[in-house]
Simulated scan of single mutants.
Amino acid sequence: MYSYKFSFRVRYEETDRMGIVYHSNYIIWFDIGRTEFLRSLGFTYRQLEEEGIWLPILEVGCKYKSPAKYDDEITVETYIMELSRVKIKFGYRVFRFDELLVEGYTVNGFTTDKLKPISLNKIKPEVYNILKQCTL
């Protein structure tokens, strides 16, 4: 399984009054992880969109185990859980050092810019094959 990790420090504006990361920020971090995961494979969201391939979110899930706090050093790991010709399920794990804080996923469809479903393996087989090689 291929995964991509990026690290950063929690910024003040990502926290609530108690200094705990506000729950919706994890979804934003998932988005960054997914974007950088694709970049690490040699293509970007922008390139895919320019070629007529969009990846709208169909579903999001998140399980909170322990809170991240202001100034924590956080690592987000992104990987592919499932891949079909019309959608992809990304998995995410958020760590503070070795402590797992959050697990989550997004399901993204492969569509045109008009949100019409497409078969990635037919439209862009080279991208589909790269993603397939990274799948669990």
Rank of each mutant, 00 (worst) to 15 (best):
I118M: 03
M81A: 07
K89G: 00
L100Y: 12
I53M: 13
T35G: 00
T112I: 10
L55I: 09
R93D: 08
I80G: 07
I32K: 12
K124P: 11
C62T: 12
F97A: 01
Y45Q: 07
W29F: 13
K87H: 12
I32L: 02
P117A: 04
S119N: 14
D71N: 15
A68Q: 08
F97Q: 07
I80T: 05
L131T: 04
I32T: 14
E59N: 15
K89M: 00
T78A: 12
F37Q: 05
E59D: 14
Y45P: 03
S40E: 07
V86F: 04
G61Q: 09
I88F: 12
K63P: 01
E103Y: 12
N121A: 05
D72R: 07
K87W: 13
L48F: 10
D72C: 13
T111R: 10
K63Q: 06
F43Y: 15
V107F: 11
K114F: 07
E103H: 03
P117Y: 08
I74A: 06
I118L: 11
F90K: 01
L58I: 10
K65R: 09
T112N: 12
S84V: 04
F97C: 00
L115R: 15
Y128M: 10
I57K: 00
T78D: 04
K124G: 03
P56L: 10
E77V: 14
M81P: 00
G91C: 06
L58M: 11
K87M: 01
E36I: 09
V60P: 01
N25V: 01
G104L: 10
Y105Q: 02
I118V: 08
E126Y: 14
L58H: 01
I88G: 02
S24W: 14
V127R: 12
D98L: 07
I53W: 09
V102G: 02
I130G: 09
R85S: 13
E73P: 02
K124V: 03
D72G: 03
Y92P: 00
E50M: 13
R46K: 15
I118G: 05
R34F: 13
K132T: 00
L48H: 11
Y128T: 02
V76G: 09
A68S: 11
L131E: 02
V107I: 13
S84D: 02
T75C: 09
E59V: 08
F110E: 01
L41P: 11
P117H: 12
G109M: 06
E126N: 15
S66W: 10
W54I: 00
L55Q: 10
E73W: 14
E73D: 10
F30D: 04
N129T: 04
S24T: 14
F110A: 00
L120I: 05
T112P: 07
G104W: 13
P117R: 11
G52I: 09
T35C: 06
L48I: 05
T111I: 08
K124L: 04
R34K: 11
T78K: 12
P117C: 08
W54V: 06
W29H: 01
E51T: 09
F110M: 07
